[in-house]
Design a protein around this nucleic acid. Structure first.
Length: 990
DNA sequence: GCAAGGTC
C-alpha cells in the first residue's frame, strides 16, 4: 500500500493552474566562458528569442530551444574551472595546529573559495527560475567533477531538478546538437575518482611539505631558514627526472669504440660510407677486419636502390607539442609560452591553447582560416599557395581530448611584438604547414662490399620542399653522392680505423622533461609548465646555459635522501603516482570503490610518511652533504593537538559544525568547518556557563547530530536538571527557542525534513513510536526527483515515513481511501503512463479524470502515489504524536519575529519535536511536472527583465509567503533592531 | 606558508 505524503497542494495548484502546458526552463552550464558563448551561439541559431545579459560574474545567454523533444527555455552560463576545492577543517589549517601526520586523517571540507563566490551565487540565482540543469563541462575527468560541483550548488538551492549531461567531442554545430539530442546522465564514478585524487594530493602535499619545511629550516638554519620546501605528487617526480639524468651523467664512464671509415671522392664530391657493423668495442677485432679489407681494397657496388622519400608535415598542434617546440626552437620556456598563448587566446588570435587534440574536426572551416593569413608578407604567399594547390588538407594525429580542437590561429594580426609575435608566428606557420603537403625527395641507397664487409651510403635529392617553405623550424638537407651503378668497382679514397668514445647523455632540456612527464603521466598538458616552474622557484633545480636542467644542492640532497632511506618506492620516482593513477582509472571504470581506493592510498602514503619521519636523520645527512652544511641537532617539533568533534552537519553546506571558543573567552559558539566559504554559526549567550559535546547521537536527528551537555548560569529550562542534556539539531523546537537558535542554522527549514536515514532506511520514529497515520493522513512515500542520478549527502532524501506532519481528517477528501489520489475537483484521479519519447517515457502519473482541473502528480516507482495534498484547515493540523498541534508566535527578535508556527503541545523533551511554519508549505518538494517559477521576477542584473517575455503568463503563488526560502515572493527585509523596512540593523537610525 | 587541477 502506498502512503501519501503531505505536501503542497497549494503550490501544485499554482503550478498547474494554467491550461497551457508549462514550458520547461533549463540552466546550461559550461566549464568556461568561451565554451558557454560558443555553445549558446550554436544552440540559439535560428531561435526566435535570444537575450544576453550580465550576471555578477559573466555573460548569460538566454534563448528558446528543444530538450527531450519539448520546447524549452535555455539559460546558458559557465563556471571557470573548479568551483569547489578541498580544504582541511578549520582546526588543521594552521601549520602548528597538529602533527603533520594527523593530516592523513584530518577532516577535509569542500569549499568555494572567495574568488568563486560570485560564480556560485550566479548559479544559485539562475537555478531558481529553472526546472532542469544541463551540464556542458569538458568531457574529461575534471569536467565530470566540475559538473558535480555545479550539480551540488544547484540542487542545494533546488533539490528536485532534472539533471542531464551533454556529451560532446568538440564545439561544433553537429556535435553540440547531437549532445543535446542524446542527453545522458553525469558519470559519478569519474567524478569520484577526481575527488579521491584531490583529497590525496591535498593530504600528501600538505603533510610532507609541513614536515620537510618545519624540520629542515631548523636543521639547516643558515641555508634553509626562509625556504619553503614543498612536496607534491607531481613536482617531486619531475625533480626526480632531473636528478636521475644528472646522476646518470655523474656516474657515466666513457668507453672507447672503433669503426672503419670509408670515403670515396670523385672530383669535388665525397661519398661517405658508413660501416654496417657501425662500431666495435674491441680494437683488435676491428683492426683485424680492417686488415682483411685492406688486403684487397676494391669496393664492389652490390646494390643501388632509389626510392621516393617524404618528410612528413607536422600533425595539428597540441599543447605539449607547442611547449616542446617553442622551448626548443624559439627558446621560450613552457611557462612563458603558455602565458603568451593564453593572452593570444583571450585576444582572439588563437584557439584555446590547452588541448590534447591533434585532429581537426571536420566541421572546422580550415579554408577560411588559411585565407585570413594571405595578406601577410612573411607567410601570406604560402597561405595563397595552400589555397591554389587544392585547399587545406590537414595531416591528422591520433589524439583527442573530446573538448578542444588543435591550436590554430583564429584571427590575423601583424600588430604583435616580441615573444608574442614569435609565438603567434609559430602557431600560424605550424598551422599552414600541417594543412599543406609533405616534402618530397628521392633517396638513393648504395651498398658496397669490401672483402665481405658491407658499407652503405645514402644520398638525398629534394624535389619539393612544400610545407618546409613555411615551416622554418625544420630543415631537410639534401645530400649529394656520386653516381653508382650495380657492379661498379672503385678504390676507396679513405679506408681506415676511426677511434671514438661513448658520450654521457645530455642534461635534460625542457622539451625532454615535458616528454618524460607525459610518458610517465605526471601532470596534465595544462600543468606541465607549472610543475617545472615550481621546482625552479623552490630552487630544487636551475638552468645551465639557459637550456639544460641541473639539480640544485637542495633538490639533489632531497632526492638522494628519499632514495637512500630504504623506501620501497621513492617519493621522487613516478611509480607511486602511476599506481595511484591506475586505481583512479579503475574507479572511473566502476571496477573499484572510490572509498576503498581513498583508504588504501591514504594508508599507503601514511606508511611512507611514518618511515620518512623515522629516518629523517638520513635525509639530513644527504642534505648536509650536498648543502655542505652541518646539521643542527633539533628537538622534536611541538604541535597543538587539534581535536574536533562535529556537533552536527551544516544545513547550508553539508560540512561538519564544531564547538568553538569565542574570542576573548567570551563563551562558546558552534561554527561551520566550511568557514569562510560558509558562515553558518550558532551563537550562545553568556548565560551558557559551559558546554560539552557528548558522544551520544540524537535518536531523533540521527547519527550526525551529537547531544550537548550544557550548564546554564540561570537555568532557562525550568523543571529540567542543570546541566541539561540537549539536542540542538532541530528535533525539539523548545530547545531552539530557549537557546534563541534560528532553526535555519541547524536544519533545513525551507522544507522541514527528517534527519538523514541510516543505511538507507527511514529514520527511527520520534519517541520510538511507529509512524503516525490516521485514516486520511497520508505520508509521502516518494517525491525524490527520479532524474537525479545520485542521492546527495547534503540534502536529505524526501523519502520518509514520518516527520513532516500531516493534518488529520482532511475534510475535502474524507471519503477517499488511504491510497486514493484526489484531484483538485475532489474527484478520484486517474493514473496514466507517459507514452511520449523522452526521459519520462513509461513513467506513471495522475491527473484529473474529467480533465476539469490541471491536477498533475507523478506516481512513485511502484506505481503508487508520490506526493499530494496538504492541510487547508489550521485546526486540523496534528503533530507527530497525533495530537493537535499548537499555534505559536515567534517572540524572539529577528527576521521571524511575529511569525506563527505549529509545534507539538507537549513540554520540552517529552514531545515529538514537530515544527512547521504556519505560513509556509513545502517549497522544495516539486516533482518532475515542472515548476512554473515566477517569470515576473526582475533579477536586477544589468537591467535584465524577463517579465512576460517568453511564457506569456504570470504565475503568482497563491499564498503570499514571507518565508526566507520562498524564492518567488520574498518579503522585504526589515531592520533587525526596529523592524522597519528600508534599512538594516547596521544603519538603523533608531 | 602546503598539492594538483580547472580557468581568467
Amino acid at each position: 500500500m502506498g502512503f501519501l505524503f503531505i505536501s503542497s497542494l497549494l503550490r501544485t495548484n499554482v503550478r498547474f493552474c494554467s491550461k497551457k502546458a508549462p514550458t520547461m526552463k533549463y540552466l546550461n552550464v559550461a566549464e568556461k566562458n568561451d565554451a558557454a558563448k560558443n555553445i549558446a551561439a550554436i544552440l540559439s541559431k535560428g531561435a526566435s528569442t535570444r537575450r544576453d545579459s550580465f550576471s555578477t560574474y559573466n555573460k548569460i545567454y538566454e534563448f528558446d530551444g528543444t530538450v527531450q523533444g519539448q520546447q524549452a527555455r535555455m539559460v546558458m552560463t559557465s563556471v571557470s574551472g573548479h568551483l569547489l576545492g578541498y580544504e582541511f577543517a578549520a582546526g588543521f589549517r594552521n601549520w602548528r595546529s597538529c602533527n603533520p601526520v594527523a593530516l592523513f586523517d584530518a577532516p577535509v571540507v569542500k569549499m568555494c573559495a572567495e574568488d568563486y563566490q560570485k560564480i556560485k551565487r550566479t548559479l544559485e540565482h539562475e537555478i531558481r527560475f529553472c526546472q532542469g540543469l544541463i551540464i556542458w563541462t569538458d568531457c574529461d575527468r575534471e569536467g565530470e567533477n566540475i559538473g558535480y560541483e555545479i550539480i551540488k550548488v544547484c540542487t542545494d538551492v533546488k533539490p528536485n531538478l532534472r539533471i542531464y549531461r551533454a556529451k560532446f567531442s568538440e564545439i561544433t554545430g553537429p556535435s553540440i546538437f547531437r549532445a543535446l539530442n542524446t542527453l545522458g546522465q553525469p558519470n559519478k564514478n569519474v567524478s569520484d575518482a577526481v575527488d579521491v585524487r584531490q583529497e590525496l594530493d591535498l593530504r600528501t602535499g600538505a603533510a610532507f611539505t609541513r614536515l620537510q619545511t618545519l624540520r629542515l629550516q631548523r636543521v639547516f638554519p643558515t641555508k634553509l631558514a626562509d625556504k619553503l620546501i614543498s612536496y607534491g605528487s607531481c613536482q617531486f617526480p619531475t625533480l626526480g627526472f632531473v636528478v636521475e639524468r644528472y646522476q646518470a651523467i655523474e656516474d657515466f664512464i666513457p668507453e672507447p669504440f672503433w669503426k672503419i671509415k670509408m670515403n670515396h671522392k670523385v672530383k669535388d664530391i665525397t661519398t661517405e660510407f658508413s660501416w654496417k657493423r657501425d662500431r666495435l668495442f674491441d680494437k683488435n677485432a676491428c683492426e683485424a677486419i680492417l686488415d682483411i679489407c685492406k688486403e684487397n681494397p676494391t669496393a664492389t657496388v652490390e646494390q643501388v636502390q632509389g626510392k621516393p622519400k617524404s618528410k612528413w608535415r607536422p600533425v595539428p598542434l597540441d599543447t605539449v607539442e607547442m611547449e616542446k617546440n617553442v622551448s626548443k626552437k624559439l627558446k621560450i620556456n613552457a611557462k612563458e609560452t603558455m602565458k603568451i598563448a593564453e593572452k593570444l587566446y583571450s585576444q582572439g588570435y588563437i584557439s584555446y591553447p590547452r588541448t590534447e587534440t591533434n585532429i581537426f574536426p571536420k566541421e572546422l572551416n580550415l579554408a577560411n582560416l588559411v585565407t585570413q593569413q594571405q595578406g601577410d608578407n612573411r607567410w601570406g604567399g604560402f597561405a595563397q599557395r595552400v589555397m591554389d594547390e587544392g585547399g587545406p588538407n590537414p595531416r591528422q594525429g591520433k589524439k583527442s581530448d573530446q573538448a578542444h580542437p588543435p591550436i590554430h590561429p583564429t584571427k590575423y594580426t601583424n600588430n604583435l611584438q616580441g615573444n608574442e609575435q614569435r609565438v603567434y608566428e609559430y602557431i600560424v606557420r605550424h598551422f599552414l604547414a600541417c594543412v599543406h603537403k609533405d616534402a618530397q625527395g628521392f633517396e638513393t641507397i648504395v651498398t658496397a662490399d669490401i672483402a665481405g664487409e658491407k658499407f652503405i651510403a645514402k644520398g638525398l635529392l629534394i624535389l619539393e620542399k612544400n610545407y618546409l617553405d613555411v615551416y622554418i623550424y625544420e630543415k631537410w638537407n639534401a645530400k649529394e653522392i656520386n653516381h653508382y651503378e650495380q657492379g661498379d668497382t672503385f678504390t676507396p679514397t679513405v679506408l681506415e680505423l676511426h677511434e671514438s668514445v661513448t658520450c654521457a647523455p645530455k642534461l635534460l632540456t625542457e622539451a625532454d622533461l615535458i616528454a618524460l612527464m607525459e610518458k610517465h603521466g605526471i601532470g596534465t598538458d595544462a600543468t606541465h609548465a607549472d610543475h617545472i616552474d615550481t621546482i625552479k622557484s623552490r630552487e630544487y633545480v636551475g638552468l645551465h646555459e639557459n637550456t639544460y636542467f641541473v639539480p640544485g644542492t637542495l633538490g639533489m640532497g632531497l632526492v638522494e635522501g628519499y632514495n637512500n632511506i630504504g623506501l620501497e618506492v621513492s617519493l621522487a620516482k613516478p611509480i607511486l603516482r602511476a599506481e595511484f593513477e591506475k586505481d583512479l582509472k579503475l574507479i572511473c571504470d566502476g571496477l573499484k570503490d572510490p572509498e576503498v581506493v581513498r583508504r588504501e592510498q591514504i594508508q599507503k602514503y601514511r606508511a611512507v610518511f611514518e618511515t620518512v619521519v623515522e629516518r629523517m636523520r638520513q635525509i639530513d645527512e644527504s642534505l648536509a652533504n650536498r648543502l655542505d652544511d652541518r646539521p643542527q641537532v633539533v628537538q622534536d617539533e611541538q604541535f597543538e593537538n587539534a581535536t574536533i568533534i562535529p556537533v552536527l552537519k551544516c544545513p547550508k553546506c553539508g560540512n561538519d559544525m564544531h564547538l568553538k571558543n569565542r574570542k576573548n573567552d567570551a563563551g562558546k559558539y558552534i561554527g561551520c568547518s566550511g568557514y569562510p566559504g560558509c558562515k553558518n554559526a550558532i551563537w550562545f549567550s553568556q548565560n551558557v556557563e559551559s558546554m560539552e559535546v557528548l558522544e551520544d547521537s540524537c535518536q531523533n536527528c540521527g547519527p550526525h547530530v551529537k547531544k550537548l551537555k550544557m550548564k546554564f548560569r540561570q537555568n532557562i529550562f525550568l523543571g529540567e536538571p542543570n546541566p541539561n542534556t540537549l539536542c540542538i539539531g532541530g528535533c525539539d523546537l523548545n530547545v531552539l527557542e530557549g537557546l534563541e537558535i534560528n532553526p535555519s542554522s541547524v536544519r533545513n527549514t525551507g522544507n522541514p525534513r527528517p534527519p538523514p536515514p541510516v543505511n538507507n532506511r527511514p529514520p527511527p520514529p520520534v519517541n520510538n513510536q511507529p509512524p503516525q497515520r490516521n485514516n486520511v493522513n497520508h505520508t509521502v512515500v516518494n517525491n525524490v526527483n527520479h532524474h537525479n542520478p545520485e542521492p546527495r549527502r547534503s540534502s536529505w532524501p524526501n523519502t520518509s515515513l514520518m516527520a513532516t506532519p500531516g493534518p488529520s481528517g482532511m475534510s475535502n477528501r474524507s471519503h477517499s481511501e488511504d491510497n486514493e489520489i484526489v484531484c483538485q475537483c475532489n474527484q478520484e484521479a486517474i493514473q496514466l503512463t507517459v507514452r511520449k519519447d523522452g526521459a519520462n517515457k513509461g513513467r506513471k502519473f495522475y491527473k484529473c479524470k474529467n480533465q476539469t482541473c490541471d491536477f498533475f502528480l507523478w506516481a512513485s516507482e511502484d506505481g503508487n502515489a508520490t506526493r499530494i495534498v496538504t492541510h487547508n484547515d489550521d485546526n486540523e493540523l496534528k503533530c507527530n504524536c497525533d495530537t493537535p498541534a499548537v499555534r505559536r508566535t515567534v517572540s524572539k527578535e529577528g527576521p521571524n519575529k511575529g511569525r506563527t508556527f505549529y509545534c507539538c503541545p507537549k513540554p520540552m523533551g517529552q514531545g515529538c519535536g514537530f515544527f512547521q511554519w504556519a505560513d509556509e508549505d513545502d517549497d522544495r518538494g516539486g516533482g518532475g511536472g515542472g515548476d512554473g517559477g515566477d517569470d515576473n521576477d526582475d533579477r536586477g542584473l544589468g537591467g535584465r527583465n524577463f517579465k512576460n517575455t517568453w511564457k506569456g503568463k504570470t504565475n503568482k503563488t497563491k499564498n503570499n509567503r514571507t518565508a526566507p526560502y520562498n524564492n518567488q515572493t520574498r518579503a522585504k527585509r526589515k531592520c533587525g533592531k526596529c523592524r522597519q523596512e528600508g534599512h538594516t540593523r547596521d544603519k538603523c537610525p533608531n
